[in-house]
């Protein structure tokens, strides 16, 4: 079994337990409730919408472990860059 698992690079229960734990502890330790995450999400949408048209349904946002630090990673699909708004950089 162990050999086959390794051969097909299937994740061992040990490894998945560790990864799941690490992820769940990021949330536990950061103490960010789903409600708080939703508020952050809404605020980010609000700010970015001043400059771009974004797909609100396509937004993926989560805390991720990056080595020993935690990162808030968001993927926000941009539909259109608004012209004439925002600062000098944006045409």
């Amino acid at each position: 079994m162990g050999f086959l698992d390794r051969f097909f690079r299937r994740e061992s229960p040990r490894k998945s337990a560790k990864e799941r734990l690490q992820l769940v502890l990021i949330h536990d330790r950061a103490d960010i409730s789903p409600g708080t995450m939703e508020m952050i999400r809404k605020d980010i949408i609000h700010v970015i919408s001043n400059y771009m048209v974004i797909s609100e349904d396509g937004i993926e946002m989560d805390l991720e472990r990056d080595g020993k630090s935690v990162a808030l990673v968001a993927s926000i699909p941009v539909l259109e860059v608004k012209r004439g708004r925002g600062r000098e950089g944006v045409k």
Partner: peptide, 14 residues
Amino acid sequence: RSGKMLGVSDVMEI
């Protein structure tokens, strides 16, 4: 050892 359970080293690391 057979990868079915968390090891002490895993627990310590976490």
